[in-house]
Structure formats: C-alpha cells, structure tokens
Amino acid sequence: MKTETVAIPKFLDMELLGRLPSLEIQARYLVHGFWMGMHRSPLQGFNVEFKEYRSYQQGDEPRTIDWKVYARTGKLEVKVREEDTNLTAYVLIDASGSMSYRSASAAMSKWNFARSLAAGMILLLSRQRDAASLGVFGAGPMQFIRPSLKASEHRRMMAALEREPDGHGAPLAKVLDDLVILARRRSLIFVLSDFYENLDALETPIRQLRHAGSELIFLQVMDPRELHFDFTEPVLLQESETRDRMTLSPDLMRKRYLQRLEAHLATVAKAVQSYGGDYQLLRTDVAPFRAFGAYLACRRGAL
C-alpha cells in the first residue's frame, strides 16, 4: 500500500506540544493542528465524514434524512456517513528504554513524541468513528486494550500511555505474532518504534498479518542526533536499555555509523514495504502529520 503524498503543515509548534500538561491535550493539539493544516493541503475537500446519499428505506432513522434535499427534490434521501465503514486500527507503541532518549535539539523524547502521536491517532480514529486499539510493549508483557469506540476504553488507552519506557522491550516479532491471533481481519496496524532489534524475525508475522488482510504501517521514531550523530568531542555514551557505557571519539566513528544507520533504516522500510505496507521515518523535531496522512489514505482505500 502506498500513501499519497501529503504536504506537511508547518504551523504546529513542537516546542509547545512538548510542554502541554496532559497527553489528552497533546493529542487534541496535535489533531487540531493536523486539521488546520489539512485545509491548506492538497487533500482539502476530501470529505472524511460524508460518503454518499441513498434512497430512504424502511427502518432508517428519520434523523438521517436530508430534509434540504427533500425540500428541493421531493425525494427522501439518507446521508451515508463514514462511521459506518467499521475500520479497526491497532496502535502498537514501543515502550522500551531506547525510546526514552531525547537529545538537546529535540523538543521531546522519542517516547513522548510517540505516545503523543499514538494518542492523537486514537483521538482521530474516534472522531472518524473507527474502532481503535492500543498495544504498549516494553519491559514485561504487552499491555493490550481491545478495539472499541467507547469513550471509557479510550480513557484506558490514555492511561496506558502514561507510563515511562524502561528496560528491554519485548521483541516486536513476538508482539506481531500475538497480534496475528488478536487482530480482526482487514484491520489497520500502526507500529511506533525505533526498531532497534532483530529485523529478520519480523518477516513471518508481517506475512501472516498481511495474509489476514491487514495493513501495516511502520512509524520509525528517531531523534535528530541518532540520524546525524553530530557529536564533536569525545563522549562517554551509555546505552539506554542495557546501561552499558562506551567512550568514543565520534570524529572517526561518524562515517561508519551513518553508513550502518542508512542500512538499518532501509532494512526496516523494506521489511514492511515488501509486503505492501507503509513506512514513515519520523523525527522528533518535526510534526508527525505524515503519520496521520498515512492513516487517512489507508482509510480512504478501505472505504
């Protein structure tokens, strides 16, 4: 599946987003910003709430009749709304220790960025009347909340995102294996992670999920420093997950690191794209609207 190219709105203040007091507010700010941007984007005019008219049939709720059409034409026409598409989206978010990283140039940590995005995604799903599900995988068993349109479930999801990342996360392959069993057919699956793990093991669950008709979207969250490795002085680094330490002179390391990084990103993208999925590289200093765009594109394809 290929998403359409979406112009990225620039007016979301990432600094402000990072400072907002609660996850819910962050999600609303994020979605609001996305919609504001949409009015200026090439997708303007794409109606996400209205689908079509059809003739009134017995049993239809009278409130669904468009009385204005009736006044003009004398025919009873019923609005068919998007909430009727029955899309189910799973948002899987990585809560391993590596997601806690935040460099000086980033507005927020990878975890905060990812969970804001996840919350925004759930909010957007609920507004679109799509069932949202959340899976948080980190140290310990995955915290999974089943798909639902209920507000109470959404609050549980928000609460689940209030944790802090720590330690080794569960292997993503295992999480996707579990999802093969748990997920409904033809669902939309978002994975928010930095993908620091064995990518070869992902192939089987991805193939199975795809076989079940699900769409997979990998959202790789990376800090700018991870992407540029812009250390100038010798540094003593400590790995977030294992707490291992290493002294480096980055001047000699940089070239080799960037080569390996490029290969790693390409491998992640290939892992999902080779089965028709989508891949987005998200920097923590740039608003994640591409992720929303990917969702909307998938939703439109599913209609």
């Binding site: 930095d194 620091y196 997950e241 290493m246 690191y257």
Partner: peptide, 9 residues
C-alpha cells in the same frame, strides 16, 4: 551521555 542503542556502533 545517554544513547538509545549501541546496535549501530
């Protein structure tokens, strides 16, 4: 200085 992972190093 923390760093997410030494996987690439």
């Amino acid at each position: 200085q923390p760093f997410p992972s030494f996987l690439l190093i």
